[in-house]
């Protein structure tokens, strides 16, 4: 088990009903963790539709997760 800090933005924040949380997980990578979250909170997007940032930087969905990492899933962006 490790503790991961999550921040949620936009559609994921609304679906989760909060903007951040700490979560205990056995997930080894962001893709696996997203599977847990999607099942728990009925997130609408798939990992193919998302990017992920680990500790403030874009990362691969299979990046190994470590204790205390901060993870942000990034829905399709729409600035401008």
């Amino acid at each position: 088990m490790k503790t991961i800090r999550l921040q949620y933005f936009a559609i994921l924040r609304e679906k989760r009903g909060q903007s951040e949380e700490s979560r205990q997980t056995t997930a080894t990578c962001p893709a696996e963790l997203y599977g847990e979250l999607k099942a728990a909170f009925h997130f609408p997007l798939t990992t193919e539709q998302l990017r992920v940032a680990v500790n403030g930087e874009f990362s691969a969905m299979d990046t190994p997760l470590n204790e205390g990492d901060e993870v942000v899933y990034i829905p399709p962006v729409a600035g401008g």
Partner: peptide
């Protein structure tokens, strides 16, 4: 700059 900002910067629009 505007094209890349729209495509890459994590900003969302409702």
């Amino acid at each position: 700059i505007i094209d890349e900002v729209k495509a890459r910067v994590p900003i969302w629009k409702k």
